[in-house]
């Protein structure tokens, strides 16, 4: 894959699963969860899967299992109805089990949002300080999170633009992970917020786009920058994080 050329080894962990991706796609396409256009959603799901593979993200095996499941459902739907009825004695819509799973998961996502509001509300009240040390190491302290899928979406659009603009590149490029990292930090600079698009030069090559994007993901994980999305315009903005002192050197990338 692409990344091998850059000696890329670090694996970024993805905290969201296949159900998150499906719910994301259902919302993005504004389709009815009870009547999921499996064909369309499967196509898109696979595109995201490819993007994640290309970036060498640590994709849980569940993503692949879900891809298989989607394709199975799709194949079922393609059967003439009489045949399908023979195969499945309960005659259920082959999508049903998935829908049930998505609904249940969505319900818990909603509940966890409520819980989040409750824990935030608690922050306004102070009690006698707890003597126990906070067991959450700094690196795990959450910041406002943005879905990896939103980022991948933005990334794929930049990539697509580059593909339209440039012929497939042949020339080798010595642009390294470190360069990508420096680029992001330089662009973010002292400004409070920079649009995602501004990380890339107008004529950025495909490989560089990939490298810069990966560097961004690492910086997010290292809590050096964070990504916020403007609610009204959906613009993705990159922001330097307060107190982001010079980070863990990216020694893993060096090779």
């Amino acid at each position: 894959m692409v990344m091998e050329e850059f000696g890329h080894q670090t694996v970024l962990e993805i905290f969201e699963g296949p159900l998150d991706l499906l719910l994301y796609l259902i919302r993005k396409n504004e389709v009815d969860i009870y009547d999921i256009p499996i064909q369309k959603i499967t196509e898109q799901y696979l595109v995201y899967l490819d993007l994640m593979k290309m970036l060498d993200l640590d994709i849980a095996g569940e993503f692949l299992a879900m891809a298989a499941n989607l394709m199975y459902i799709k194949s079922r739907l393609l059967l003439p109805e009489e045949e399908r009825a023979e195969l499945e004695e309960d005659e259920d819509d082959p999508r049903w089990e998935l829908v049930r799973q998505l609904l249940e998961y969505r319900q818990f996502k909603g509940l966890s949002e409520r819980l989040h509001e409750m824990e935030v509300a608690q922050e306004d009240y102070y009690t006698r300080a707890d003597q126990r040390p906070d067991p959450t190491p700094a690196s795990e302290q959450p910041i406002e999170e943005i879905s990896i899928f939103v980022l991948l979406d933005a990334f794929s659009r930049v990539l697509l633009e580059a593909d339209k603009r440039l012929p497939a590149e042949m020339e080798p490029d010595s642009f390294t992970q470190e360069d990508g990292r420096a680029r992001v930090l330089e662009r973010v600079g002292d400004k409070t917020r920079v649009p995602f698009i501004a990380l890339f030069a107008p004529d950025e090559s495909r490989t560089r786009i990939v490298v810069i994007f990966l560097a961004l993901l690492h910086l997010i994980q290292q809590k050096m920058v964070r990504v916020v999305q403007d609610r009204h315009f959906g613009q993705i903005m990159i922001e330097k994080l307060e107190g982001a002192v010079n980070p863990v050197p990216a020694e893993e990338e060096a090779s």
């Binding site: 994301y24 595109v47 659009r157 697509l160 315009f233 959906g234």
Partner: peptide, 22 residues
């Protein structure tokens, strides 16, 4: 969809989706 998916999908605008998922 089969043909459309390749170029249509990633270019979808995010703007309709104010990032309320997260």
């Amino acid at each position: 969809v089969e043909e459309a998916a390749a170029d249509e999908f990633p270019a979808r605008d995010l703007d309709r989706q104010p990032g309320d998922e997260h």
